[in-house]
């Protein structure tokens, strides 16, 4: 049973569709990079998968069960605003979250907190820095011993050292317990280190969905003379042009024509290319 399957899922807020007609399947054990511009619907998708946002159309199911209205017991969620009880100490928070769960491992939480620098268990959560709070929230999420971990911008308030620690924790979790992870982030270089699957969402729709290596292999970046663009075959995703030179991102490109230089894109160039395309469309 797949950890997460979306079937034509959509969410409308008043007049605007945040997510529209998205369908995808996440295979077990994958670490998925959920990328896309702000306002693309990433947070809404994760919220629907966690069961705290109700879809307008279609639905999501986690391990075969529809997610609407209730968080699946095997799923853990980290929201963008890190919902935590600020007036409790870390110790009390661990106890509180533990008492709200059927399956819980305090040892796992202590293990994760131990891997992080500078978490005082008797400090009130509200006095911790934003980055440390995020790490505490991740520890709480892992205490549930989930099979699917949904993380909305987990790295955004972390400094380089903390990001490093957190990515390590995620990678260890995946390696030891085979947890499936879906994480949204803007920090593509960090994602590239951990993720093996990409889900690119823009304007509420899925633009790219697949194994990262395969997706990158299917695309090509061609640099060459602007005048000669007609000789290039393949589906154009986006292009940046100067007076004389064109840089094109292509999907299913034919062999590189003469006078052009072709390379396989890295994750960053791929995502940027799609973001550029959608920005052009919006204009």
């Amino acid at each position: 049973m797949n950890p997460l399957t979306a079937t034509a899922v959509g969410k409308r807020y008043r007049s605007r569709w945040a997510v529209r007609d998205c369908s995808f399947t996440i295979p077990e054990g994958k670490v998925v990079a959920l990328v896309g511009p702000n306002g693309a619907g990433k947070s809404t998708l994760l919220g629907m998968a966690a069961g705290i946002v109700r879809p307008t159309t279609g639905g999501l199911s986690a391990f075969g069960t529809p997610t609407a209205g209730r968080t699946h017991p095997d799923v853990s969620y980290l929201g963008q605003n890190r919902s935590l009880y600020h007036d409790l100490t870390v110790r009390e928070l661990t106890r509180a979250v533990g008492s709200m769960n059927d399956r819980w491992s305090t040892d796992r939480v202590h293990e994760v907190l131990g891997l992080l620098t500078g978490v005082d268990h008797d400090a009130k959560v509200g006095t911790l820095s934003a980055g440390t709070r995020t790490q505490v929230a991740i520890a709480m999420a892992l205490g549930r011993l989930p099979r699917l971990l949904l993380l909305d911008e987990p790295l955004s308030d972390l400094d380089p050292l903390a990001r490093d620690e957190t990515l390590r924790i995620i990678m260890t979790e995946v390696a030891d317990r085979g947890t499936t992870v879906v994480m949204s982030s803007h920090l593509l270089t960090d994602l590239r280190e951990v993720c093996d699957h990409i889900l690119l969402v823009d304007e509420g729709r899925v633009q790219v969905d697949g194994d990262i290596e395969e997706v990158l292999a299917r695309h090509r970046i061609l640099v060459g003379p602007a005048a000669d663009e007609s000789s290039v075959e393949g589906t154009l995703v986006s292009a940046t042009r100067t007076a004389r030179q064109s840089t094109l991102l292509l999907r299913e490109a034919a062999p590189t024509p003469k006078g052009w230089e072709g390379t396989e894109p890295d994750l960053e160039s791929l995502v940027m290319g799609y973001l550029r395309a959608s920005r052009e469309r919006r204009r």
Binding site: G51, Y77, N81, S83, Y85, V97, M100, R144
Partner: peptide, 10 residues
């Protein structure tokens, strides 16, 4: 927004 913490537990 702390209700999200409770709503995402069992």
């Amino acid at each position: 927004g702390t209700h999200v913490l409770a709503f995402t537990q069992s």
